[in-house]
Design a protein around this nucleic acid. Structure first.
Lengths: 245, 245
DNA sequence: CGACAATTTGAGGCGCGTCAAGTGCCGTGG
DNA sequence: CCACGGCACTTGACGCGCCTCAAATTGTCG
């Protein structure tokens, strides 16, 4: 099976992504080692694994998570095409979190020290990476605000809005026909610090009120205004990220 | 009042911090604009403020937070000497979170675009910054796990351990005589997604069990083992960060 | 000594967790 | 073809952890 060259990366044309010089693309190409393809519900990085490489997510959905020793799990963030994976742990260090797929997914693999190489050979790309990393943190900040201070209804409204925006930005039609939504209610619960049962009851309540609809693995927004009001979003949440490549 | 030169920065000798070439220190010095000194309970960055500069925290304690429109507040992370502030927002963007002081504090101020300048002129420092940023995120990850999945007792045990370690790393004596602890119970509550009242009751329970003691603005660890067991820390939590300069 | 903030404690209630069952939708195999 | 098991989703009953309300206590500073 032949691998995609970075120059032909299907993500590049998306309006979301930055333009890069051919030099920059060549640099990234030279650092890329291989690709990995996983099915849904497989794990890319085990919690506590050492020396995990760096990845970018090319296709599909995944998520980062941590678990306590008795099995309680917290999902830290959801990963969509274009996201960066694994910057968090310093070389030689144990991974602080696991990464599992939600759908079949394709990852580009980079050696751990190519992070340094990238900085050295292209400060521009290096700068973009720190910005991307900072943006990732601000997503976690948002989730922390939700989990710490929002009610179950508010948390779910927030999650739906944010995921819808991110997913819609990756497709042509701006989500008018809904967006793919591969999460189970268990994932939603673990992402929001709720129990499965309460998540179900709250989702149904919002759906019965006509705020949204989830069916056949797709999410449809029925009343974004009402959801945004619930989530206490004044403006429009976050501007979309501008990932590398 | 005369300002400290970076070469004489009192933080540099601490074992926690990386060594840097004189070139690197000179570079940082050239980017530094000025210093700001605040009292306790003042705000350095307002939520939603645009074009906030970059800061490093030289002395004192502070914290990052977000609030909902009805006043509910979530503290995202606590800031100690050596921490970096403000990488999160892209230039020209509104600050996604506020920053307040807990104690009198001293900040070094950098222009917003010196982040780019630093990357361009010293890839090494640029690399360190992305790593620092990633480390900051992993702290937030930890808090998110606590707030989402730990009980009140467990959350407080976790917070005490982590703050104790960070504070102890900044002083000579390894915390045998306690460490400074300027948080009020309201700060603890807002950092852990708890109410003030419940925070108080839980703190007292742990204190009566002899696990810790807070008095006169200092924190003493009485039974770290028990606290670590409560917090479900197998190893020793996180390795200390290696900030710039 | 009075004002005010931080801490402490009690009483009562609600949101969300846990337990338990049931439904619907597959995919597999007899 | 239907029986079957498994998984996601759904719903009800009940209990507990944490929230809210209220008030007292302590310490600090003018």
């Amino acid at each position: 099976m032949t691998e995609t060259r970075c120059a032909d990366c299907p993500l590049r044309p998306l309006p979301l992504f930055l333009e890069h010089s051919t030099d920059e693309v060549d640099l990234v190409q030279s650092l890329k080692r291989r690709e990995v393809r996983l099915e849904a519900d497989e794990t890319l990085i085990h919690e506590g694994q050492t020396d995990a490489p760096l990845y970018t997510l090319r296709e599909g959905w995944a998520f980062r998570y941590k678990t306590l020793s008795d099995g309680r799990r917290q999902i830290l963030s959801f990963l969509l095409a274009g996201d960066f994976i694994g910057v968090q742990q310093k070389m030689g260090d144990a991974a602080a979190h696991g990464v599992d797929t939600l759908t079949p997914a394709l990852f580009c693999v980079f050696q751990r020290d190519s992070l340094w190489e990238l900085h050295r050979r292209s400060p521009t790309m290096g700068f973009n990476i720190t910005w991307l990393t900072a943006h990732e943190e601000s997503l976690v900040d948002d989730t922390l605000l939700s989990v710490g201070r929002r009610s179950a209804e508010e948390r779910i409204a927030m999650l739906l809005i944010l995921l819808f925006k991110r997913a819609a930005a990756l497709q042509k039609n701006d989500g008018a026909n809904g967006v793919p939504f591969p999460l189970t209610q268990q994932h939603i619960a673990d992402g929001l610090g709720l129990s499965l049962v309460h998540t179900n009851k709250t989702l149904r309540k919002l759906e019965r009120r006509g705020l949204h609809r989830i069916a056949d693995g797709r999410l449809f927004m029925r009343d974004v205004k009402a959801l945004a009001r619930l989530a206490d979003l004044f403006g429009d949440g976050h501007p979309p990220p501008r990932p590398l490549i």
